[in-house]
Amino acid sequence: MIGRLPQHRIVDVHAHLGPYSLFFIPESDAATMVAVMDRTGTDVTVLAANRAIQQDAHLGNSQSLAAVDAYPDRIAAYAVINPWQEPERELERLAGDDRFVGIKVHPSLHRYPVTGARYAAVWEFAESTGCPVLSHSEHQSPYDAPRLFEAVAERYPGTSVVLGHAGITPAGVDEAIEAARRYDSLWLEVCGSQMTGPLIRAMVDQVGSGRVLFGSDFPFIDQRMSLGRVVCAPLTESQRQDVLSGNARKLFRWRPLPGERGVGQ
């Protein structure tokens, strides 16, 4: 019997905010997200507004900051950098506003490869500052297949890159694991509709529990779907706690998350 109250403390490193044109999302506002977090034991969520990834990075990033302002102890923001929408302007904004704790890129949606020149400023900024980067990753995508991140890691070894969805498909997870085993700067995040507890266990077994991160994609998808896979996965309790929050606290050192300063600061 699982009970109605969660037993773990959680940091969700992959979240969004607001509506999305392709389908209806009920209650996609920040207040409802925080209410869900209260039910699931989530201390902090790091989000990038759907408007920022889907249509207008600048306006969407402002929506993310408004959510931080409304819930500064619970929500932190990624700055979405769209390589087609004045990336240097948004990087300057990120540098000057410590409500942003990381960068989010979505190469598949923006139809531009992570290895392209328009992303160079992102990797250079991240390497010089320690700002973590969350990227969508998708098996066989010409823009963000897991193997493409090996070239990024090779060229910018000091940049921490989180492979969102860890490649999405089972075969993509295997490819993401291979990339993360070769490069210590690559981290794996576990949300995705084809993810399972055994696949998460494979990540932990082969990469180590120290570079696997919980994320959910909510409110794009309900947070409890991804969370259930981790909570019920065949992991030790120590491994599970690493994934659910411990690793996120280690990763976000440039600008620590609300509620606790980053490890080593």
Binding site: G3, R4, D222, M225, G228, C232
Partner: peptide, 21 residues
């Protein structure tokens, strides 16, 4: 066909009252 943890946690930690659960 799916990871059972999804539905278990989805309902247990839902916003439904006990009677609706």
């Amino acid at each position: 066909v799916r990871d059972p943890g999804e539905s278990i946690v989805r309902l247990a930690w839902s916003g439904l009252d006990d009677a609706t659960v």
